[in-house]
Amino acid sequence: MKIIGSERFLNIDFLNTGESDFFKDLGKSNIKFFSSGRSAIYDFFKNEFSSSSVFFPDFYCMEMLNPIIKAGVNIVFYTVRENLTADTEILGRIKNVKWIYINDYCGFRDNGLVVFAKKRGMKIIFDRTHSLYSKFDFSNDVQIGSLRKLLPVPDGGILLNSRRKDIKRKRDSSFYLLKLNAKLRRHIYEEFNSNEKIEMNYVRLSEESEKKIKINSKNISLYSEKILSAYDVKRSRELRRKNFKMLLSSKTIKERAVIKGLDSLTVPQSFPMYVEKRDEVKKILAKDRIFAPVLWRGENSISKRIINIPVDEEYTESDMIRIIQGIEKILKTER
């Protein structure tokens, strides 16, 4: 049975010959590559950040937060509500913090927060890990992100609109080779040999590779950079939007959806929805080879109930129907 979610393997049908327009556009924003998103975050806050404090969302993963703490920056949290928009009350009360870190959750933009920040004259740092494909106006704002949440690459982080000139840096292989090995074994398991030992191996290698990720100044692997440069982002955008809309077509699922519509600028990273007994739902879906990740486990109450359904471009209409049927069956038992 086809695996949905988990480690993504590169589908060469999504590779173009030559550099894509998307890659060329990124290059216009003074792009700097890193081996990971957390390394890109650390580099900016350590070497370019011009203040002592930053507003930061209270719905986060530690991989986002730790590099900022390591750089010695003070964190002032603002609340993210259940619809994934910010409560700007604390932002209005504290006047001496001039920078704000905005995460485009699941690829969607909190326009109200952006307008608020710009009216206050705040400097914005956009985390584009989920909105790399979305067509928002980033202007000259700082943009940071990991490439692994949207692209089937083993490593990679980016910093856009950096004020520092990049220098030649060594490429990192500490976790990239393990991650690539895990992806290959997952492909073998799914396509050629559904042996339990192969499954255990790809899961083990994937977990080991995550532990190997270090915060450093090293460059992205040449393998991942070449994939990014040739990846068919235009087609990926269309298919992700199509898959998201298919999930919304289910009345049962739409009732639980965090975001119930899709504007023309947004390209979703995943489909966020709320369920009771979230971890139990994950286990039931996993039995049907549907792996729905929890992207952030923080103190915010959202993290206890939210689940992210994959809408990756390699999933076909029949794959999405299988997801819909699996979720609908679970949700009916919750009523």
Rank of each mutant, 00 (worst) to 15 (best):
S236C: 14
I94T: 12
Y60L: 00
S146P: 02
P154N: 15
K254S: 12
R128H: 00
Y78C: 01
S236E: 08
F108M: 00
A40I: 06
G112E: 13
R322H: 15
K277M: 08
E199P: 00
I167K: 14
Y231E: 04
I302K: 05
K218I: 02
D87N: 15
I307V: 10
Y315R: 10
Y202V: 08
F49M: 06
G156M: 07
R305D: 13
S250C: 09
S36Y: 07
G112W: 05
L239G: 02
N216Q: 07
I41C: 00
L285I: 11
I330L: 14
K149S: 12
K98D: 12
E89I: 06
F138D: 07
L205Y: 15
E328K: 14
A257I: 07
N195R: 11
F136M: 05
G37D: 01
E314S: 12
N243K: 06
K165M: 09
T88P: 01
H187G: 05
F49I: 03
Y223T: 13
K98V: 00
E19T: 03
F291D: 01
E334C: 04
Q269N: 15
E317I: 07
N111A: 01
S20D: 00
D172C: 15
G298T: 13
M62F: 03
F49Q: 04
C61V: 00
V115S: 09
D13M: 05
V294N: 11
K197M: 14
K118S: 05
A257P: 11
R335E: 10
I102W: 07
V97G: 03
V73G: 01
F126N: 09
R93F: 08
K168M: 09
R186E: 09
F136Q: 05
L265C: 07
A117P: 06
K283I: 11
L132A: 04
E63G: 00
I227M: 12
Y274W: 13
E334W: 04
P152I: 09
N195T: 07
E190T: 10
R186L: 06
L222F: 15
K119S: 08
L228F: 12
Y315W: 10
I144Y: 03
L26R: 01
E190N: 12
I227A: 12
M273C: 15
F291V: 14
I12K: 15
F23I: 00
Y202D: 07
E328A: 07
S209E: 10
L178K: 13
E225R: 15
I321A: 10
